[in-house]
Amino acid sequence: MNIFRLSGDMLHLISFLVLMYRMRGQRSCRGVSLKSQILFLIVFCCRYLDLFFSFVSLYNTMMKIFFISATATIVYWMLTKYRSSYDMDNDKLHGDGSFMGHLPPHGVLGYIIVPCFLLALIWNEGFEAFEILWAFSIYLEAVAILPQLFMLQKTKEGEAFTLLYIFCVGAYRGLYIINWIYRYFTEKHYWQPLVWVSGVVQTLLYADFFYYYWIALRDGAKFQLPG
């Protein structure tokens, strides 16, 4: 454990709290992508299957349980008490309604879940169920924020807490990259190209957002995407 990873994890933890605080405070989930939240829930459920068979540390175990339960709570709230404020029209992917005619989650399944799973079958750290699901979770996490970013793109502006949430998740990913560099130089045999490549892709997806978020903060102006 180093300071970069710890800070990254803390930002990740805070991101859930920000989102939940915001939803409860405003009694609304407007501007939050249910698709991204469901994808994150799939990510955590697949990756943390090792809760059942391998123990790393109490810290890891508690964080894993928190990530799964917080995301499950957010999804549950969006489907129940805050359902009426869910902005479904702006949470549609380009392919929704057209993927092979009529398969249910359309865009998300066709453009995000299936490609990630196929990639996991090709590039993994071992051809067995857990390894494939683990690789799948890494690839899926890399792109899980896309529906949220598309939603922001459609509405052009976001509510302060939603923006803070995206910022926290993006910053957590950025800190993980620094953590990897640190580990590479301080640990022997630390080599994980699969995670590094996905992590860099994931962080790049936030670049645009960070740029406009920074402009808004610098100018004390409202966050507004161009176009």
Partner: peptide, 10 residues
Amino acid sequence: SYQNSGKDEL
């Protein structure tokens, strides 16, 4: 090993 792989991260 597990401790030295990406699997000891979150």
